[in-house]
C-alpha cells in the first residue's frame, strides 16, 4: 500500500473532482435558468475543494505533483473516488439523487473530519462543510419536491433511487487506509457514520414518498481503485485530453 495519508487525500479530492466534473456537464442545459445557475455553483464549490485536497495530496507525496498534475495526468486505476460519483448524469432526477446521496454522506464525513488532528485537513473540512451544508439543503428539497410532485416526477425519482442505491454501501466501507487514518486520529471511521446517514435518508425518502430498495447490495472498487466502472475512463479521456495531447504546453 502506498502512503495511506496520500491515498486518503486522493479519495477526498477524486470524489469532488469527478462529481464536480459531472455536475459541470449540466451547464447551459438545465431544466430552468435558476437551476442552471445553482448547479454551476455546486460544481464550482466541488472544483475548489478538489484543488485544496489534491494540492495537499501532492504536498504529502513530495514528488512535485500539484492538483493539476494529479487530476490530469493519472489514469483510471490511480483514481480513488467512489463509484457513485462517476455514474453518468442520466436525467435531472438521477443527477439530483446522486448529488443528494453524496451530500448526506459528505456532510456527515466532513463534520467528523473537522476534528482531525491534521490541521490542514481539519481546515479544508471546515471550509468545505459550509458549502456542502448548502448543497444538501438544496438537494434535499429537490428530491422531496420531485418525489412528491407529479406521477412522472415521482416515478423518475424512484427509478433514480433504485439505480443508485447499490452505490451507497461503498461510502461506508472501512479498509486498511481508513484503519491507518483512524489510528492516527486523522479521519473518522466511515462505518460509524452509517446510522446517521440512514436517519436522514429515511426521513427525506418518507417526505418524498419514495421507497428505499430492500437489498443492501453494494458495488465496490472505486474507493480502493481496484475496479472502477467503464464510465470513468470516458470521463477522463475528455477531461485530460488537452493536457495529454500537448504535454509541453502551459495553459
Amino acid at each position: 500500500m502506498s502512503d495511506p495519508l496520500f491515498e486518503f487525500l486522493c479519495r477526498m479530492g477524486d470524489n469532488t473532482l469527478v462529481l464536480g466534473h459531472r455536475v459541470s456537464e449540466w451547464c447551459g442545459v438545465a431544466p430552468v435558468l435558476e437551476e442552471d445557475i445553482a448547479l454551476a455553483n455546486t460544481a464550482l464549490d466541488l472544483i475548489g475543494q478538489t484543488t485544496l485536497w489534491l494540492n495537499l495530496a501532492g504536498e504529502v507525496e513530495g514528488k512535485g505533483r500539484d492538483a493539476d498534475a494529479l487530476a490530469f495526468r493519472r489514469d483510471v486505476w490511480d483514481f480513488r473516488n467512489v463509484l457513485l460519483v462517476e455514474q453518468p448524469n442520466g436525467d435531472f432526477g438521477q443527477t439530483m439523487m446522486r448529488q443528494f446521496l453524496f451530500d448526506v454522506w459528505h456532510k456527515g464525513y466532513l463534520t467528523a473530519l473537522q476534528d482531525s488532528k491534521h490541521d490542514q485537513i481539519a481546515a479544508v473540512a471546515e471550509k468545505s462543510l459550509k458549502e456542502v451544508t448548502y448543497h444538501l439543503e438544496r438537494t434535499m428539497d429537490t428530491v422531496i419536491g420531485l418525489g412528491d410532485g407529479t406521477e412522472e416526477s415521482h416515478n423518475r425519482m424512484q427509478k433514480a433511487l433504485d439505480k443508485l442505491y447499490p452505490y451507497v454501501g461503498e461510502l461506508f466501507v472501512r479498509d486498511d487506509v481508513d484503519d491507518a487514518m483512524i489510528a492516527a486520529g486523522i479521519a473518522p471511521d466511515p462505518a460509524a457514520l452509517r446510522a446517521d446517514f440512514d436517519a436522514v435518508l429515511d426521513a427525506v425518502l418518507r417526505e418524498a414518498t419514495l421507497t428505499k430498495p430492500e437489498s443492501d447490495f453494494a458495488h465496490k472498487g472505486g474507493k480502493s481503485g481496484q475496479r472502477h466502472s467503464e464510465h470513468l475512463g470516458h470521463m477522463l479521456a475528455q477531461m485530460q485530453w488537452l493536457q495529454r495531447t500537448y504535454p509541453d504546453a502551459t495553459w
Binding site: I37, D68, A71, W241
Partner: peptide, 27 residues
C-alpha cells in the same frame, strides 16, 4: 459550454464555468 469538460486545468475549468454561469445570470 462546449469546452467546460475539456478545460486544461482546474483553475481554467472553474473560470470558464463561472463565466458561462454568468451568462445564464445575464439571461
Amino acid at each position: 459550454g462546449n469546452w467546460i469538460t475539456r478545460a486544461p486545468t482546474l483553475e481554467r475549468k472553474a473560470i470558464l464555468l463561472a463565466k458561462v454561469q454568468d451568462e445564464a445570470g445575464h439571461g
